[in-house]
Design a protein around this nucleic acid. Structure first.
Lengths: 250, 250
DNA sequence: CGGCACTTTGATCGTGGTCAATAAGTGTGG
DNA sequence: CCACACTTATTGACCACGATCAAAGTGCCG
């Protein structure tokens, strides 16, 4: 395994760049790629497009899982809460990702927008129909699901074994890679998450995240541009830290 | 969500009590339940039974993923290693569980026996054939996979938000529930893991696990029987601690 | 009985959490 | 355009949980 695979997968989720929405933008590859025109036609017309503001909930933990969503614009976070109020961010999702797919009756986590954006919503029963009609689609869901499982396990490894700075470095590198995979160019990336969000994702407090970021800045590894821009000036240094240093600094 | 759902799922993995092995014991329910006799016949005869000693590797991280396994006797741990040598136990598996199913070319984690036991091995291409012939089986894999994903997310929450004692309590309760789900009766459970294994699963050192266990013992919550027997004398206390205390001590 | 692996317990240290004050952005209305 | 309120970020001081280092203790197998 390449040293960065763990961190690379850290933020990737179910269906990166795999929209299930036919009419909502050009990213409709992945899941639907194996379908023919008739199948696409079959499915489109059923999905609704919804607009959300920053901090709006797309769905909440415990809601009846009646729909499956495709994030078409913006960035969202997935959160899970404990009965005593403690909560954790279990992942972030970007344009093109699928949200809220589950065979269970209720959503096991909530999804909230970090930016304003749009979402496409497909009735779950409709998706089940599609599965019956086009089994290849179901297989793609299975593959994506196993991939996400693998990413979760990497996150488990990070939470259990990485120091605070290693986790923050891994997060920043993953964020950059996720944006590049979606066509971003240039050294300045978007960081729409608050320190608190990052902390809840990494199992740290917002102060610790802030200290790590400051430390990277003082070392010249990153530069902040405004309130939601971040430049990775020494990405290799971050990547090494994220992967467990001494291993193989390629 | 019930307060214990998180901890309950903590140790459950892909295919609890869902053997894919036809000739290896009576637990062949779950995955194959929807198949008819002809289908079962179709698949049996292809699987091989293998015996392992304690600490033997069933497969290693990075191995070509040529087979899918069903653990038929004993208990195993799944481990993932970082290039710098740090490793984490990402889960435990019991009799009836499925191991090593992945659409990838290589296993993303290794599996080792904690006890001596037996495993049934099915060629992966054979399984793919089965999927094509009996699509309902593929759907069951998808469902199990989503369940496991949910369990991983609970573990993420535990690692990120639980204190050392909470994690150990959650582990013990989950262990007991996993054994009960497999037919175990009585207050004394099997604890075939070393303190180091538990620590690597929970992101703690073996000393911290030992201290938590001692502390529970002194409080009268548990009692140790020999080297691998544990009695949960005050399970409710453990469960409360595991779920985040004050919530709802039913 | 000795050897070995695992566990327990203690003492000390350090990372990261907590509490608190200040600073820097961001958005709104005058 | 600036003043003000508000949110988010930074930095510092202190503290606690759990890691680390070290030494006995326990049970198991040859």
């Amino acid at each position: 395994m390449h040293p960065l695979d763990a961190t690379r997968a850290l933020m990737e989720g179910l269906g990166s760049e795999s929209s299930i929405c036919m009419k909502c933008g050009s990213r409709s590859v992945g899941l639907c790629a194996p379908l023919d025109a008739a199948a696409l036609d079959d499915m489109s017309g059923e999905s609704e497009r919804l607009a959300f503001d920053q901090r709006d909930a797309i769905f909440r933990q415990g809601d009846a899982a009646r729909h499956v969503y495709t994030l078409t614009e913006g960035m969202a976070r997935l959160t899970r809460v404990l009965p005593d109020g403690r909560q954790a961010v279990i992942g972030f999702r970007f344009a093109g990702d699928i949200l809220g797919f589950t065979p269970e009756a209720e959503h096991a986590f909530g999804a909230e927008m970090l930016t304003r954006g749009t979402v496409c919503r497909l009735d779950r029963r409709r998706l089940e129909q599609m599965f019956r009609r086009y089994p290849v689609m179901e297989r793609r869901f299975l593959d994506l699901c196993v991939k996400e499982l693998s990413a979760s396990q990497d996150h488990i490894l990070a939470l259990g074994r990485f120091s605070a700075e290693e986790r923050v470095a891994a997060f920043l590198v993953s964020l950059a890679e996720a944006q590049e995979r979606r066509g971003h160019v240039g050294p300045v990336f978007d960081l729409p998450t608050t320190r608190a969000d990052i902390g809840e994702f990494l199992g740290l407090t917002l102060e610790t995240v802030s200290r790590a970021v400051s430390s990277f800045r003082k070392r010249g590894w990153i530069r902040l541009h405004g309130h939601s821009g971040i430049e990775l000036s020494d990405r290799n240094a971050l990547a090494c830290l994220a992967a467990g240093e001494g291993a193989d600094a390629a």
